[in-house]
Design a protein around this nucleic acid. Structure first.
Lengths: 168, 168
DNA sequence: ACCTGAACACCGTTCAAGT
DNA sequence: ACCTGAACACCGTTCAAGT
């Protein structure tokens, strides 16, 4: 493990355990037993750490979706399950532009491949499905549904009702 | 206009004009010709300002949706148009939990009424539609679609394909 | 009522310097 | 190679004090 990877590891642990406010360069350094300025010998900026976390998250989500089995309902469930398991990482992943130069070629494509397959290759339908899943998860994580809302039922309605894809 | 409302006005202008990083208490105070500590005689915290902006945004979005005419496609277009017109306010509105105590009773309900109507009263379908629209907007605003993606087409596919509601 | 300077406990980041 | 203290330009917020 390079020192850089070690930093990203600690950042991920810190993020999920204590939230984004806690993910400061000083705190991160403390967790590693060094001082904040020393971090900059291994990474260029805090942004680079966040981009690395974004990449990891995409990879992990992509694997979860690839293992989801067939059918839109299963795919939606897998998406939601992953997000609720890694809520702060999910936030960080989606709340920033895709750092396309910093993210290894194909990570993005690999993550979305299962969705595109479920949409039978229809890119517009795939984007609609991605938007639907992301929107429902984002509203849930942001606490926008009233307490006691039956979010399961909303997912079922959404993904059962959605047509399976045919190329346009 | 109360001094409080004036502060929120300036905050909204500053947010849309220069982005969320610029919306600091010191900068906001400067814009009003006073010092940051003086703001606290009129508002309790920066959080309260953001909750007020959230409320304003919800009201304005609600009006836009109510004027959208009938049909899911029109509703979706109105939602997207509003978000693209007020991108940073939209972000601030959706990226924080609904401040239910601070937001006037019914604002939330009024904003979602047109969606619920379009879903023929099916709350699960209404949530699915809200999630779909929010997700597509959020991904677009976060720069997650590849450059040159035909986002219009994705919206059309999404909202034309979606079934009109029947109560479950 | 409304505003102030000084202060506290924080940020991300740079830089010259030490081993 | 790896780490350091000191510093810079910032945050949100509190508080005693001034008009």
């Amino acid at each position: 493990v390079s020192r850089r990877d070690e930093i990203v590891d600690v950042a991920e642990r810190l993020l999920e355990a204590e939230g984004p406010e806690t993910l400061s360069m000083r705190r991160l350094a403390e967790e590693m037993g060094i001082r904040a300025p020393s971090l900059y010998k291994h990474i260029r900026s805090k942004d680079e750490i966040e981009a690395a976390l974004q990449q990891r998250g995409l990879e992990s989500l992509g694997e979860a979706l690839a293992d989801a089995g067939t059918g839109l309902v299963n795919l939606g469930s897998a998406y939601r399950r992953w997000a609720l398991l890694h809520p702060r990482l999910y936030d960080l992943m989606t709340r920033r532009p895709l750092a396309r130069e910093q993210i290894a070629e194909g990570v993005d494509a690999a993550a979305s491949a299962p969705v595109l397959a479920a949409a039978a290759g229809d890119i517009n339908l795939a984007r609609a499905l991605w938007g639907l899943a992301h929107g429902l998860v984002d509203l849930e994580l942001a606490g926008r549904f009233p307490p006691g809302a039956d979010i399961d039922a909303a997912w079922r309605t959404a993904f059962e009702a959605f047509p399976t894809g045919r190329p346009s």
